[in-house]
Design a binder for these strands. Structure first.
Lengths: 202, 202
DNA sequence: CAAGTGATTTCAGTTTGTGCAATCACCGTA
DNA sequence: TACGGTGATTGCACAAACTGAAATCACTTG
């Protein structure tokens, strides 16, 4: 007979998601999560750096996979390479888990602290993408802008994808978002050098 | 004789910036900040929601000013309106305080928790910008993408502007970043359609 | 001059997060 | 079989972040 029930990490993650969903993030204490997972508070902090981190488990492998796909898409220009990689990851790792991802997304959307953590994860991912592009010959600023633009489209797509009535695939929503972004950013008759302080009304 | 020394908030902000700069964010305790400002820990938490917030004071007025400028630049297309407003705000509120802003930026860059908070502030600002654009007739997704793109350029510009040797103005760096973003996002050989503004890059 | 206001303080308490030592089933090895 | 090492878990003690409630008291207002 094993000394401990297996899958402590998964049990903690599941308990946390349940409790956050039931009563909110702030009203849930770490001791409570641990109790429901039949573990102790101390064990929780052995597995997760802090209370929020319990919701961000699959981040590492997702990031790893994405970077791999980017370096694989060597032929395409930067933004296309990233978007292409994102489509692959969307199909391979997100599309099948739509229910869980949506639930997690709702929990995060309901709490500012969790939103901040997600923004941090996204920023780290952006840096990784930029690094992968830089390794391919992009200048640092260009790499950062391309990575950021791709993440922007990804965010817009996720917003739609996690909507209650939505049925389109994340892949399609991402493609649509990229097209929209290209329209918004690209097709503007802007004059690059207004004399000073703009031709503003008022 | 007044009962308390005036400007408690400013004193706390100054003390916090000093201490974070001297010994880092984590190694600085709230009690320590309060002591240097000749106040108590409880007073600190009366003025700031948490330890990080003490560094993000001028956010509110900056946001307010930016939104006003955006609604003022009614004639321009979305992205240009936002960038134009950002240039005004850069000139009016940032350029003169380069030293302080750079110092604050360095402190934030040195600590993940502070970076998360800044990302949160930036996200909130993005939402405000998107709301202002939406009020002008943009569709929600388009507004979000335009706001995000502008913030992306702004971030890239800030990175350069706060570099040790850098002498160019934030306004110029922002303009340059926007140009770079338009090149990165717009000029892709997948669908080459630059019908106007004949200066095709690459 | 009495009453009210509001920034500050004190105090007691909860929660997060950490360091350290102890437990004890499991595993490989003699 | 015996035996020592490994590693996930736990208990305990503790710093630090935050919170609610009540008290203080210069200043303001009527």
């Amino acid at each position: 007979m094993p000394r401990w029930k297996p899958d402590a990490v998964e049990r903690l993650q599941a308990a946390a998601l349940e409790l956050f969903d039931e009563q909110g993030f702030e009203r849930t204490t770490v001791a409570e999560i641990a109790r429901r997972a039949e573990l102790t508070q101390r064990t929780f902090f052995n597995h997760f750096a802090d209370k929020r981190e319990v919701l961000f488990g699959m981040d590492a492998e997702l990031r790893q996979e994405l970077v791999r796909e980017i370096t694989a898409a060597d032929a395409l220009p930067p933004l296309d390479a990233v978007v292409c990689a994102m489509r692959v990851v969307a199909d391979k790792m997100l599309e099948s888990r739509r229910a869980v991802v949506t639930r997690r997304y709702a929990v995060i959307a309901a709490n500012p602290e969790l939103q901040e953590r997600e923004l941090g994860k996204n920023a780290a991912l952006t840096e990784d993408i930029a690094a992968a592009l830089h390794a391919r010959g992009c200048d640092p600023t260009g790499a950062f802008l391309a990575a950021g633009a791709a993440m922007l489209a990804q965010q817009a797509a996720m917003r739609e994808w996690t909507r209650p009535g939505e049925t389109r695939t994340l892949r399609d929503l991402l493609t649509e978002a990229v097209r929209s972004l290209r329209t918004t950013v690209g097709g503007e008759p802007a004059e690059p050098s207004p004399p000073d302080s703009g031709a503003g009304p008022s």
